[in-house]
Amino acid sequence: MTDALEQSGWEGLWERIVELVMWKDVAKSALWFGLGSMFFFSCSFSREITFSPISAFCHLGVMILGVAFLKDSVPQSRQPLETGRNFQLTEEDLLRAARAVLPLANSLISTAQVIFSGNPSMTLKVLPVLLFGAKYGSLVTLWRLLATGFFSSFTLPKLYMCYSTQIHRTVENVRDRALEAWKSCPRKKLVAGTAVTMCWNLFSIKTRFMAAFISAVILRYNHQYHKADGGDQEQEMEVKP
């Protein structure tokens, strides 16, 4: 019963976030977007924020020491409490924390399993993002990451939902034109060999390895795509009398 309630709580929180970023309630989304924009724009004029876990831990320790000292220094009008009282975690506290974190952890694990499943389509979608992060990840600070995530969450999902049909149509047209141009090319082997030779001689060993990996993924994706397309055509042929 408790697990169901906690899971419903996480689902309710996720639904409220989706309502905000998809602008289902324009007034509420505009309020949060305006407050966040004011915060990021006002802080952008100051020195960029850097985060250090050690520094944050030390600042938190100083605050706790100050609060404990002030609490101990204030004279107690009533009878003094027991001085030997210690704070201890119990099994119930750990189980309660585990039940709260478990749905989120399972969701992250299932998402990671889908992303790193080895499916060619998913690999082609995730690989450019990972390569970009590996190349320019050192330039991404915590402040830039928060600002980019905030503005992207309030703009990209809504824009994609509104223009998803046009985006898919444009991508399909570009793909069809590229395939037609490649099929109409009379010297495919010569063009492919020249491109591979230039890439092999100009790029580094790491780039060569990544290019070979991407090529293998594309070939497997095309093989699965044509195989699935052929299976669908065979089923249609069998259905027709």
Rank of each mutant, 00 (worst) to 15 (best):
G149M: 13
S215M: 09
L142Y: 05
V191G: 03
S8T: 07
A211G: 05
L31R: 10
I205F: 14
W32S: 06
F209K: 15
E48D: 05
S77I: 13
I17G: 02
E234G: 02
V67L: 15
S164F: 11
Y221G: 00
S77H: 06
L13P: 00
S117N: 14
S107G: 05
D25E: 12
L124H: 01
Y163L: 08
R16G: 08
L95E: 06
S121L: 14
R220V: 04
F57I: 06
V140H: 02
A68Q: 13
K189A: 14
L130Q: 03
N173F: 03
K28Q: 13
F33W: 10
R175Y: 13
L127N: 01
V74R: 06
F33E: 09
L65Q: 12
I218R: 13
A56R: 10
V196D: 01
S73E: 07
F116P: 04
A192H: 12
G193S: 11
R169V: 08
F132N: 03
L65N: 08
R208V: 02
M210Y: 14
E15Y: 06
G61F: 10
L81V: 04
F151E: 00
V26S: 11
A30C: 10
K183F: 04
Q233Y: 04
L89W: 15
M1Q: 08
N106Y: 04
W32D: 03
A195K: 13
A216E: 09
N119G: 03
P157A: 01
R47M: 03
H223D: 04
L35I: 13
G84M: 02
T170K: 03
L179R: 14
V191W: 07
M122P: 00
V129C: 06
R187P: 00
L94I: 06
G12M: 06
A178D: 03
A98M: 11
S153W: 00
W10L: 14
T2G: 05
G12C: 03
L70Q: 08
A68V: 13
N222D: 04
Y160R: 05
A97N: 11
H168F: 10
A216M: 14
G9E: 13
V171Y: 02
Y225C: 01
E180F: 07
I109Q: 05
Y160F: 15
D72I: 05
L89F: 15
R208C: 15
S184E: 13
I205H: 04
L202R: 02
V18N: 08
G137P: 01
P80I: 09
K240M: 09
S29I: 00
S107M: 10
S110P: 00
I54R: 14
R99F: 04
T111W: 02
Q76G: 00
G34S: 15
F213L: 10
